[in-house]
């Protein structure tokens, strides 16, 4: 889909996470296209209700952790056995047990920072990005479910009635290029 095309969205706002969960689950099982869901905190079970596929971030974490550990073992070997050997307590230059704690720390550092960095890059959350709220209060105490009106069979009245059944407090239609 071209990014220039305007898309139509239906936004439903909920006061309670339980209402949001059942409404999202119902929207998915009825085959509606869930554009996104906005909540002030991580809601348990929401990924399942939205039908999200498993995150690929663990792979970044694993690969960069492994790379960090490998790099650190090599670096310690190079500094203490190749480039500037120093006799510490009569130990061999290449003393693997002494490298382990720092290797572990660097692995954790690489794995942790790279996962956060991959998340920020993947979401486009670069410095200078302005915050846009789907609805005032979604970072405070409101929960917003955004459905996309993908084709003509999307009946706004019918869907609104369904959402009202789940305790929606506010419904509005939006025309925009992106859900936000």
């Amino acid at each position: 889909m071209s990014s220039k095309t305007n898309r139509r969205f239906l936004l439903g706002v909920f006061e309670r996470e339980e209402d949001l969960l059942v409404a999202t689950d119902a929207a998915r099982t009825r085959g509606f296209d869930i554009a996104d869901v906005y909540t002030p905190y991580a809601v348990h079970g929401l990924d399942k209700a939205m039908g999200l596929r498993a995150s690929r971030l663990p792979w970044v974490c694993f690969a960069l952790g492994l790379a960090g550990a490998t790099f650190k073992v090599w670096f310690e070997f190079w500094t203490s056995a190749v480039d500037w050997p120093i006799n510490v307590g009569g130990k061999p230059w290449n003393s693997l047990p002494a490298f382990v704690p720092i290797t572990f720390e660097v692995m954790v550092l690489f794995a942790g920072l790279s996962t956060v960095a991959a998340f920020l890059l993947g979401r486009g959350l670069l410095p200078g990005r302005r915050a846009k709220l789907a609805f005032p209060g979604v970072t405070d105490n409101k929960f917003a479910l955004v459905l996309e009106e993908t084709d003509a069979s999307f009946d706004v009245d019918e869907v609104s009635a369904m959402l009202r059944g789940f305790g929606v407090t506010h419904i509005e239609e939006r025309v925009d290029q992106e859900p936000l």
């Binding site: 307590g89 009569g90 382990v100």
Partner: peptide, 12 residues
Amino acid sequence: WFSEYMLIWYAD
């Protein structure tokens, strides 16, 4: 396991 091993290995 490693914490015990490394301290003993280091002090020797």
